[in-house]
Design a protein around this nucleic acid. Structure first.
Length: 554
RNA sequence: GGCUCCGUAGCUCAGCUGGAUAGAGCACUUGACUUCGAAUCAAUAGGUCGGGGGUUCGAAUCCCUCCGGGGUCACCA
């Protein structure tokens, strides 16, 4: 049991004792929240419990606080002091720090992992960009955040699966085929009218060129429809391969790539519509079938089957979400761009209509990204004249920096991505700041090894030599990591980990500048190496969650 | 207009399930390398938490309202 739980339990017991002694009356005690006080003088932990309890008990919070403090005799507690309007500040005997550090060191690579999520089955679906062209920077943010969230949830003890939904059915894919077709004919010297909704990207021309290189004009002999079908298949395959390559270069992998087509082909779509029709969630009007999404607060009902009999995108998406839930996931997390916000309501409505709880779907909306270079908004890629792609971004700033910049801000905030800052190898760049701390520790260990001092010699019983305020602060910071992971996972907030690891690196740098490791008494050196080791392991764990490398040298 | 995100230091942003003197990075100013990596550290300075009401012991945080800015409102996906 860690120290906070111990403390919570002790407060709880003291409070009950006080009630039994008639100090104050209460039926329900509020949850005991312990936090690290804003200032060191206020002790190791503080609680506002007595102020919370005072409201229900209609008693002066200080009276309650005094009663609790008087009933706490724990040996590990140095003192408990009432402060301000009724805070209780706890000052612990210092050996708790060394017990904690010892514990962190013995957990090694596993420090940070917990059972918090109780193996809840969660699926995270993200990116899911149409396979009609390259990923752009907006997708990049979703990709970075999504993959970090998956890692975060895993560390926090959830049973997580990641998934990419491939929109390989419908109009946009037909447009893709038509675009490739038009380019194919162009390359063969024919005059063609480019499709109105076609894709103008260079990648389409390249795909067409590869086809020409391979088969020449032989497809011209085939009927148009057959030709389009072949080109569709080729283009789709290429686009998908390109997506996977881009994502892999960005440290993003998926457990499952789910094809929309399969829902059309295996009857899941019609079956789902039938279920909704049978339970009255779908009705017919103007020759089309409509989902009663207004029942869930949507502005209007939505068409699922058009009057020409062709299902809408929504129909497939409903079948898809039904499929996911039928697979046994307790919680679905979708990461969408801000432009899809209005879509949440109807999908939740459908999930409710299917007999699941709309709460089982959680949609995280990621706000938009703006690129800046030299203080100027970058609207288009200089090279292609179109939106800047993820691979261009990676090429310019690198995967590590791009991922960190995408993840470091809250999803709710629009992101101003400063390209100059992201690629500067200097003190301004937070990525390098963190990696530098890691590399610095590696360097310390290398030098110690040269002096014949190895990490195996660290004596866990002598960690209490770490008594300076810098060492104590650093140990405390390390101790917060486990809970930080759990909190960040609960809030679906990977940016908290980015912030945490940046703070941790900062505290390490401070410690490093204040406390020498090499050239001090051997026991002290080993104790400080132990602290550095715990920091290094924690940074590596956190960077692992963020999908960023931890270099031994820079 | 409806829905939604944002508005906090010069800039970019944390903090938001109410708590103590509102934080960080960058930029600015000043200082620290003959000793473990100066991609570092230390110090100074910088604020009507968009405005106004309300709720209460206590509000950046909750409620109402107004003002800015972004996104979105298809039988497209």
């Amino acid at each position: 049991m860690d120290i906070k739980e111990l403390l919570q339990k002790a407060i709880y017991q003291a409070a009950h004792q006080a009630i039994a002694d008639g100090v104050f009356a209460s039926h329900e005690l509020p949850q005991i929240i312990l936090e690290v006080p804003p200032q060191k003088e206020f002790g190791d932990f503080a609680t506002n419990f007595s102020m919370q309890a005072a409201r229900a008990a209609k008693t002066n919070p200080r009276v309650i606080a005094e009663a609790i403090v008087a009933r706490m005799q724990e040996t590990w507690l140095d003192k408990a002091v009432i402060a301000g309007p009724g805070f209780i500040n706890f000052y612990l005997k210092s050996d708790w720090l060394y017990t904690m550090l010892r514990d962190i060191l013995s957990q090694g690579e596993n420090y940070g992992n917990s059972q918090f999520g109780e193996k809840e089955r969660v699926q995270v679906e993200y990116v899911s960009a149409n396979p009609t062209g390259p990923l752009h920077v907006g997708h990049g943010r979703g990709a970075a955040v999504g993959s970090a969230l998956v890692n975060l949830l895993k560390a926090a003890g959830y049973d997580v699966a990641s998934e990419y939904y491939i929109n390989d059915a419908g109009n946009q894919i037909d447009n893709l085929a038509a675009s490739v077709h038009a380019r194919y004919l162009e390359l063969l010297g024919q005059e063609v009218e480019f499709p109105a909704d076609g894709y103008h990207g260079q990648d389409i021309i390249e795909t067409a060129q590869r086809i020409v290189d391979k088969v020449g004009d032989s497809y011209l002999a085939k009927p148009v429809l057959e030709r389009l079908a072949i080109l569709k298949e080729i283009a789709l395959k290429e686009k998908l391969a390109a997506l996977k390559a881009d994502l892999a270069a960005f440290n993003v992998q998926f457990d499952v790539w789910f094809s929309e087509c399969t829902l059309h082909q295996n009857g899941a779509l019609t079956e789902t519509c039938q279920v909704l029709k049978d339970n009255g969630s779908i009705y017919e009007k103007d020759g089309a079938l409509w989902l009663k999404s207004t029942a869930c607060g949507d502005d209007k009902d939505r068409v699922v089957i058009r009057d020409n009999g062709i299902p809408t995108y929504l129909a497939a998406d409903i079948a898809y979400h039904r499929n996911k839930l039928d697979r046994g996931f307790n919680q679905l997390i979708n990461i969408w761009g801000a432009d899809h916000h209005g879509y949440i309501c109807r999908v939740k409505a459908a999930i409710g209509a299917l007999g699941y709880s709309p709460e089982q779907l959680e949609v995280l909306i990621v706000q938009m990204v703006s690129l800046y270079r030299s203080g100027q908004l970058v609207k288009m890629s200089k090279r292609t004249g179109q939106s800047v792609t993820l691979s261009e971004l990676i090429e310019e700033v690198g995967t590590d920096a791009a991922r960190f910049f995408f993840i470091m801000r809250s999803l709710d905030s629009q992101l101003d991505f400063d390209l100059d800052l992201a690629k500067s190898k200097s003190n301004e760049n937070p990525v390098y700041y963190i990696q530098y701390a890691y590399a610095r520790i590696a360097s310390i260990f290398r030098q110690a090894a040269e002096d014949g001092i190895s990490l195996e010699e660290i004596d866990y019983t002598k960690l209490d030599l770490l008594a300076s305020e810098w060492e104590v602060d650093l140990i405390k910071k390390l101790g917060e990591y486990q809970e930080e992971i759990a909190d960040a996972a609960k809030e679906r907030a990977p940016h908290r980990i980015a912030r945490y690891v940046h703070d941790l690196a900062g505290q390490f740098h401070t410690f490093y500048n204040q406390c020498r490791i090499k050239g001090v008494d051997r026991d002290l050196q080993l104790a400080r190496m132990g602290l550095a080791l715990a920091v290094q392991t924690t940074i590596r764990h956190a960077l692992g969650i963020l999908g960023i490398s931890a270099p031994e040298k820079m």
